[in-house]
Nucleic acid binder design. Structure first.
Lengths: 340, 340
DNA sequence: TTGAAAGCGTTACCAT
DNA sequence: ATGGTAACGCTTTCAA
């Protein structure tokens, strides 16, 4: 039960009666070693339970990194963990380990975990930016650690990025509602002052404008209050003197809140959410869907490319969305509401 | 735009006009260094964008690990990622970074990623065991890497573990159904030959026995077929000559399948799921709930303790479950079905 | 085909 | 209060 010490290259070399370098070669350039030497080394390694130390490997000058860091808001958010899943799979394909770090979507958290990951000497930094400004990473990028921004572009930082076609998605959803006869269409989101929402609101307004509908501030609920529940925001909206006949929920959390709020209504408004979620099909909720897993995969692939080739132009990838009709978004305006 | 080289302790030392060791002290035992020396070192460090290299730190003999590995089935499974969230939070509190690795719930995957993580020299290995046998890790444990099993105990391996009170939870759910008048209670799970399901089925049968109800193989759908959809299993069950009046779904996936299958039925059976899920409250589904995040936290805490104190007895933690009534589990048997 | 020596960035030990 | 030296486990020259 005594805690033994871990075998090193030298221990294996001694037992096999060769030099350390030969053992090293067996693991990296096996074809340069005589077959029977390989055999002897391998059996010595097995006997000593030898396992190469990746830390020591990447410590050498020029020894590439074996890990990649991912800075995410939290592991419980479906969008975040799906992206993480895509990243992990793609990285595993290329032999990199994934270190995840969460920030609780706070700016300080982002800087703090970035620091930790860089001290771990990750080969690349993948992140869903939170703060208004990632310039604090510019120095690190110049020192050779590429940064890949996901979902939102990095600000004041040279970085590759993978984002959604947010405007186009919101535009399409809004147009779909208009084509069903809706004119009073609400857009609800929280938080609102993030890149994705700014883009989506722009798409929403553009679609209204294209149909000759003036945007109405009463139906734009652009919140930035972590405390307010999406459900109550929707309930509040629906007891005003004039109510919308359709709602676009800016993200999955707001959408679930809207579902809760409108489920029991006799004549619920049409509803389209942004981001798909697990039971949306059971509940019959139409959404602007996309593929977060693919976002993660593409981001990871960019990271791998950058690690191999640190110089070169940065890539900005925009992934498409698609409107998934499941019923809630196809409801016509209630008759009593259709007149203005 | 030329890629510079990263500053080291020596670079900082040279610029500050001190020795490398002094710089090192500034970062670890600052009170042993003269205040103005600290000042000079810090400003030199800032100028060179110096950042301590954790890889080099833990390379030294006795230099503790800074990472912990978590082997999970996949990042998209709610149970898994919630556990991961708990682990990540707790580890961050203690200054450890989390490396996640997924196995697709395959035995080979488990061995493969364990190998990778051990090569990364993680300080501890957290895992939700998949295979029937984790003895392949016993050597590593003796070499000083503690293993903590989550949700299922490790087999043939000395390891701490954190599991649920599966039997008690299933017992309670079954008793609750019995007390509502149910006698034909089905138990459905897939896969069935894992520790948790064996335990839960045992609890289910014990509850039946305690009410003098003979277990009936027709209502035990213990599958081990990844291909069969839970939904179709339930549909099939409900078109038999004799149908159950209540269903217990052994895990969240089966439960969601059961919801899909029974949603449209005029007189749906009572339903209790094991594991809570996001929209269970909206759908009114009663479940045997527990706290996966807490499981992760406790497991991480055990890992930290073991890393600090490698010897000592292993701990087996059993966390409680609780029955959450939301309607679906409180339905009485349909009248036409209540006679045998 | 194989080996010796130097170095990667850090800290422990022992001096000063 | 500060510094030199050796060591951590590995790979890369350069030789043999």
């Amino acid at each position: 039960m005594a805690v033994q010490t871990r075998a090193t290259l030298h221990d294996v070399a001694r037992l096999a009666g060769v030099s350390a370098k030969t053992v090293s070669r067996v693991y990296s350039q096996r074809d340069l070693v005589a077959p029977d030497t390989v055999e002897r080394v391998m059996s010595a390694a097995k006997r000593l339970r030898f396992r190469p130390n990746l830390l020591a490997q990447s410590l050498r000058r020029g020894g590439g990194a074996t890990t990649v860091g991912f800075i995410m808001g939290e592991l419980l958010n479906p969008f975040y963990y799906t992206v993480a899943a895509g990243i992990e799979r793609e990285l595993a394909l290329h032999g990199f380990a994934l270190i995840v770090a969460t920030t609780d979507d706070s700016v300080e958290g982002e800087a703090r975990v970035a620091d930790t990951l860089l001290s771990q000497r990750v080969g690349a930094l993948l992140m869903i930016p939170v703060g208004e400004d990632q310039s604090y990473l510019e120095g690190e990028r110049q020192l050779g650690t590429p940064v890949i921004a996901i979902d939102r572009p990095a600000r004041d930082l040279v970085a590759d990025s993978v984002v959604l076609a947010n405007r186009a998605g919101a535009y399409e959803a809004t147009r779909a509602l208009i084509s069903r006869g809706h004119r009073r269409i609400a857009y609800i989101c929280n938080p609102a002052s993030v890149y994705t929402q700014v883009e989506r609101v722009t798409g929403y307004r553009a679609a209204l404008a294209s149909a000759g509908i003036d945007p109405d501030p009463r139906w734009e609920r652009l919140l930035d209050d972590p405390a307010s529940s999406p459900e109550s925001v929707v309930r509040d909206l629906m007891v005003q003197p004039s109510v919308p006949t359709a709602i676009i929920a800016g993200n999955n959390r707001v959408c679930i809140g809207a579902v809760r709020a409108t489920l029991e209504m006799p004549a619920p408004p049409a509803l389209i959410g942004f981001d798909d979620f697990e039971t949306a099909d059971v509940l019959g909720i139409s959404v602007v869907g996309h593929d977060p897993m693919e976002m993660g995969r593409r981001a990871a692939r960019l990271a791998v490319e950058r690690m191999r080739d640190p110089i070169g132009f940065t890539t900005q990838l925009e992934l498409p969305t698609r409107l998934i009709a499941r019923g809630s978004g196809e409801r016509a305006p209630a008759l009593s509401e259709s007149s203005r």
